[in-house]
Amino acid sequence: MKDMDKSFRKDTETEFPLREEMRPRTVTAPDGQVIEIDPLRDYFCEEAPKVHRKSYSAIVEGFYNWARANSLWILGFGTGCGAIEMRPLMTPRFDAYRYGIQWRPTPRQANLLIISGYLSVKTLKRAIRAYEQMQQPKFVVGLGSCTINGGMYWDSYNTIKRLDDYLPVDLYIAGCMPRPEALLAGLMELKKIIRRGEAEGANKYAENFDWYKANQKSVIKDWDMPDYSW
């Protein structure tokens, strides 16, 4: 066991300056008019995420949930070492395709974000962006112990410990690392959750948006993007 310096206090004073390209600037238009540009306001949509209701009819919603469960499109984004465990799912041995699972290269078309292992703060920022750019309903699976409680990186200054503080997680798959079989089993479990209509993480995220943002901003000091990356 390592001793801890009880007197250590992290620096909470210093603000990280906004990056140059995101700072407001003035430019001269072709007609000589000088105009103000605030990149964060002008270039990004500032709307907060919305809660999207379920379908009015339970039967229709059930039908939809069946389709969602059987057409899981995973965002091809490997955040940590667990990404290597996802690849075998495409091989003849595991063949996840037969369950309607496939990988999409763009978050716009993906429904499932798998945080595959430890998540450094730097990657967290990207993961948040990728998650927010996915369309509802969307699901998050935490893969491996690191996403649950930090795992072997429990004392690292630079990796988060609880993924659900930052993103609404539908399912954790424990292990360090879980093998592809475990992963497959987890996805089957996720399907059941979706079928039951319980995978409403996106709406939860929208409802508790302020809480999630506060958590995210407490660890990401150089927050140089809009609150919600549409």
């Binding site: 059987n70 057409s71 395709y97 309607g100 429904n111 369309q135 309903p137």
Partner: peptide, 27 residues
């Protein structure tokens, strides 16, 4: 898929995918 030794997607998978995309709530 079969040539590659996999089982492959269900034959009706295209319908499900289509339905899923229609079923997405936001755009």
């Amino acid at each position: 898929a079969r040539v590659g030794g996999r089982y492959g997607i269900p034959i009706w998978q295209n319908y499900i995918d289509l339905l899923k995309n229609i079923a997405l709530r936001s755009k």
